[in-house]
Amino acid sequence: MTTEFTPLLSLTGGALIGISAVLLMATNGRIAGISGIVSKILPPHADRGGLFQSLVFILGLLLAAPLYKLVTSQAAEQTMAASTVILIFAGLLVGFGSVLGGGCTSGHGVCGLSRLSQRSMVATGTFMVTAFITVYFLRHVLGATS
């Protein structure tokens, strides 16, 4: 299935993500890495302050879709190709890999690259390559329809 090329919307959305990351660092001194923030709400809790900050940030994420719908009166577009079994497997890998690697698309990708962190450049390069290979394998070797 093809999706529409949306350079302007994607650039605007990306800029908002960047603004959020800079805002969180400017106000609370924290990196807007979602795998880090989400894993902080899971036990064991290292610091209480971090726990509440994380919960409130996640609440903000959860309010985004309802607010978007309220303002634009249309739901966010979402098409999911993967089956339930694949999604469970994918979720486990994403959770395991992002915490082990110390970050995901936001922490390493957005924040790390913006800080010119070499660790994050290596991490981002690595997950981009394995993601490209995975989708190639999924669609062009196994022939999954998208």
Partner: peptide
């Protein structure tokens, strides 16, 4: 190795489901 292995595994999961944590 955790940085590399973790990121590699994350990428496979991201590709399979099309979803990352955020």
């Amino acid at each position: 190795s955790k940085l590399i292995v973790g990121s590699a595994i994350f990428g496979v999961g991201w590709g399979l489901g099309g979803l990352c944590p955020g």
